[in-house]
Design a protein around this nucleic acid. Structure first.
Lengths: 108, 108
DNA sequence: AAAAATACATTGTTATACTATGTATTGTGT
DNA sequence: ACACAATACATAGTATAACAATGTATTTTT
């Protein structure tokens, strides 16, 4: 670890940004958990542990920001596909507006 | 509380953004703790509890991102003035670059 | 046949915001 | 004069969520 402070900071920042990443991606297409981990890495260059993402998805379900359905596969383990709900969409909009506002203030 | 999820999200996001706020403000002028609370509210419209800020300042001191000096006042309690260090400045630059990168990806 | 990748999930640890509380001084309203 | 708010520091306990470690099971690659 080169810079302990920065690494810790990234981890703390993730606590706020991860729900935003998940909602952002699910706003564009339905995904299953394992797929989300790869998409988040591809889009945001962020490595998310499974032990982080799965509890987060469960949490977002409880808050009713997401819905899900099991989809059987021709072969292999069934996939749990998640979709963003209407509540999720409105929250996502507020979250994006807020983060943009903050960043404007930091740059301005 | 209207939207419990959003309130919690703001709180989590703060964990990542608060060090950025503090370094950003101290990059422009030296401040004492109580003053920082007011400045953060004024600039970022964020209410920071004293029980949040003081431990954070102590942490940033330990990480050597800040320096401080006590300044006696003509009247009243002495103030502990904080200033950003060279390490603090370089970390701040990285933090700003990173947050901007993320926002670009969310908006793009 | 072994290892890696896919796909789900839980448990324990750690970091940090937040509430509550504490100390002490100064200013304001009545 | 006296209560209350504001100023200015600080710590203790609680709640939240990332992360590492671990577990189960199937499929693909070497």
């Amino acid at each position: 670890m080169k810079n302990e402070f920065l690494e810790n900071w990234h981890s703390q920042l993730r606590k706020g940004l991860l729900p935003l990443y998940v909602l952002h991606i699910l706003d564009q297409k339905q995904c299953y958990g394992y797929e989300l981990i790869q998409d988040i890495k591809a889009v945001f260059s962020v490595d998310v542990a499974e032990g982080t993402l799965y509890p987060l998805l469960i949490r977002l379900m409880k808050e009713e920001l997401l819905t899900h359905q099991w989809v059987e596969q021709p072969s292999g383990i069934p996939r749990k596909y998640y979709a963003i709900s209407a509540v999720g969409k409105s929250n996502l909009a507020e979250m994006k507006a807020y983060t943009n506002l903050i960043i404007t203030k930091i740059n301005g």
